[in-house]
């Protein structure tokens, strides 16, 4: 029974692939949003496992979004190809930024990534090629706006991210970074090249965020400085990770599903200020729920095992 986990995952994916046959447009849209934030949350958590916190998620999303839109409009590229180019560019920028600042820890790193976001926001707002404050509107959404097509695209990105994170948890880099998060000096003195690993993970996660941002821009068919670099792209994944449980693949997944559903319901109950609940969830999760919901499951599982 070693492979039951993979079996369950495969069955879930198959069910997810077949869902457009049964569901209407609204549930599919809802699932799209869940997948977008799921991919962001998992990728954010991948970097968090090394003890580093990036607040640049929105920045890389925005970079990816603008790149894909510019590629489709100016170069006439296929949307899917341009999404990949957006991901590559986000990765490249992450490489440069990471090379410069990953010697720094925590707060400084977080602030620099935030500053990079803001700089790109100001750049796209002030240049003519990026459409200034109004942004750019695509003539056509991806797949001509077909709900099933966009759903499969987002599903593919989310599943790709989950598998990546899963595989990543079994690699040498993951163990190196976990030991870094626990005690950096010990890790460094056992001969680990922490800096190299940090840069690798930062580049990979940023590329994923660029890809998600690109897909987002292609699905909704527009980019603007405010919506593409929206603070929600940082806020929601962070809350999802904290609620679901950090340092795991399934924690962020659980968090993304739960919080997206809660958010959709809350928007009806408290139309203005539903973010209040997110803030409370964050505080509660940090103070009293360190392992998140997944942590609770794990504890129960461990008890049952014993």
């Amino acid at each position: 029974m070693k492979y039951w986990k993979y079996m369950i995952f495969a069955v879930c994916v198959l069910v997810a692939i077949s869902l457009p046959k049964f569901l209407g447009v609204y549930p599919l849209q809802m699932l799209n949003i869940i997948f977008i934030y799921m991919a962001l949350a998992v990728s954010w958590d991948m970097l968090l496992r090394s003890g580093q916190m990036s607040l640049g998620v929105a920045g890389f999303c925005g970079i990816g979004g603008y790149t894909t839109v510019l590629c489709t409009i100016n170069l006439g590229l296929n949307p899917l190809v341009s999404i990949l180019i957006g991901a590559l560019l986000a990765g490249l920028i992450a490489l440069l930024v990471g090379y410069a600042v990953l010697h720094l820890r925590l707060l400084y790193f977080a602030i620099v990534t935030l500053a990079v976001t803001e700089i790109f926001r100001i750049l796209v707002r002030n240049f003519d090629i990026t459409g200034g404050p109004e942004g750019i509107i695509l003539p056509n959404a991806i797949f001509k706006g077909d709900a099933a097509g966009t759903y499969w695209l987002m599903l593919a990105i989310a599943v790709f991210t989950i598998i990546l994170s899963w595989v990543f948890q079994k690699t040498r880099i993951h163990f190196a970074l976990t030991s870094t998060a626990n005690d950096e000096i010990v890790a460094a003195s056992s001969g680990l090249n922490i800096f190299k690993y940090l840069v690798i993970v930062f580049v990979i996660t940023s590329a994923i965020q660029g890809m998600v941002g690109g897909a987002y821009a292609q699905i909704y068919g527009f980019v603007t400085p405010e919506s593409s670099f929206s603070v929600n792209f940082v806020l929601l994944p962070v809350t999802m990770v904290l609620l679901g449980g950090s340092n795991s693949t399934w924690g962020p997944v659980i968090g993304a599903v739960l919080l997206s559903v809660i958010a959709e319901a809350l928007k009806l109950v408290i139309p203005y200020g539903h973010l209040l609940v997110y803030g409370i969830i964050m505080i509660v999760a940090i103070l009293w729920l360190p392992g998140g919901i997944y942590g609770i499951f794990k504890k129960i599982g461990a008890k049952a095992h014993n």
């Binding site: 962070v238 408290i270 973010l275 209040l276 803030g279």
Partner: peptide
């Protein structure tokens, strides 16, 4: 950091409501 982030959100949104 995260706690401050959450507190900031709570204060801002409470005033918003």
């Amino acid at each position: 950091l995260l706690l401050g982030f959450g507190l900031s959100l709570v204060l801002g949104q409470a005033v918003n409501i």
